[in-house]
Design a binder for these strands. Structure first.
Lengths: 217, 217
DNA sequence: TTGTTTCATTGACATTTATCATACCTCTAC
DNA sequence: GTAGAGGTATGATAAATGTCAATGAAACAA
């Protein structure tokens, strides 16, 4: 039934969850929660695509990752300060399941297999963040943009040809640069024949070359 | 007895741990484990100071944090790929307790309070990590160096006047810049009367000013 | 002693990246 | 239609930061 860590819940817990969860729809562009707000629920993505991003000051935000159907939006506020440490916004029309955080906590206390697997889920996210940190700090703009395009094609859209609701600003925020720089680099990739991009449609023509740019510069 | 998350173990588990743990000493500069190596133990720092750092390619490394007495070095390889995702090196002569990873996993499976508190421990690390990402991406060099000096004085040495084994390269790796830039900025801070620094001795003369540079500069 | 190594320092310079200004679309509202 | 808003695109310029080279200082071995 569940494709995520919730599949480790036992049958009692699943029926408990069925009775207590509730579902909410969001339209493209709507904010699910804001960084700093109290954390009252764990969220499961049933349908759609969302961006997880850090806000700091008046400047740009940092897009940490995208969440798609089947994934969970918890957050490090769980059992610490019970606040959200990132903001969550729908990139497409989205359907979500909200699980009360006390309920979620009781699942962990009553089911140690689930607890262990939830730890593994957190650790996997942590591994990705280490990779992101390495990319941001050690790669230049071309490499960072290549990383973003590979992430989108490999992890999100699972195709070399995809249409996206991400704006140029979003793509810049994923790649740790300004939108002007992002636009320039996309144009370079286009002129080099590595990608085609027209408005919101991207087509990766030469994935090997893109991978090479990601690896080596 | 324990000042960290291990205090949530029950008495049976603590006596089990006492019989199965083992202690190892490391000298300054010695590596405890390397990124990529198999993860066989969880490590508790009994005494000393260590640096947790990411290695990527031939270039600089990234120092994620320092670990001091009472803290735990787990890592996101736990219950995922059982590999280390960062390297760990002693900055001072250090005494460590090694806990077998299977034993640690059984503690989680047998004690859900411990599991929940371990999740909280991971989440707190995750929150710091978000802060680090924001600092690296949105602050310029002065701000990043101020952050490092505040971290050292507030979290590690708990004094405005401290002696450290960190090299200039280490301080640069904590601040996401080259060692030349780190040296230049330290000199600027020195010339501005914000700090004194002579070899390995640092004295923060104007903490308010340093905080201001961290916030706004 | 001398040579060697490692780290710290400094300056000149090059590169990377952001900022600013402007123009051009494509919507939508009126 | 037309004006405004928001996103996209492009060029000129400035700022931030890294690279390279050279020197000095301290530690240490032969």
């Amino acid at each position: 039934m569940f494709t995520n860590v919730l599949r480790y819940l036992n049958s009692d817990q699943i029926s408990d969850l069925e009775q207590n969860k509730f579902n909410v729809s969001f339209s493209q562009g709507e904010t699910i929660f804001k960084q700093g707000a109290p954390m009252t629920h764990i969220i499961v993505i049933d349908k759609g695509l969302l961006k997880v991003y850090l806000e700091s000051g008046l400047r740009h935000s940092i897009i940490l990752r995208l969440l798609k159907s089947g994934e969970i939006a918890g957050g490090p506020g769980f059992h610490t300060d019970y606040r959200h440490h990132f903001s969550l916004m729908a990139l497409e029309d989205t359907e979500l399941t909200f699980i009360d955080i006390n309920k979620f906590e009781s699942f962990i206390l009553d089911n140690s297999i689930f607890a262990l697997e939830f730890i593994a889920y957190l650790n996997k996210a942590h591994i990705s963040f280490y990779d992101k940190l390495k990319t941001i700090q050690h790669k230049q703009m071309n490499g960072r943009m290549a990383a973003t395009l590979c992430y989108l094609s490999d992890n999100i859209y699972k195709s070399n040809n995809f249409e996206t609701n991400l704006s140029r600003q979003d793509i810049a925020d994923m790649s740790a640069m300004t939108k002007e720089s992002a636009i320039r680099i996309l144009k370079n990739f286009k002129d080099s024949g590595i990608i085609e991009c027209e408005n919101n449609t991207f087509n990766i023509l030469n994935k090997d070359s893109l991978m090479d740019i990601f690896e080596n510069g």
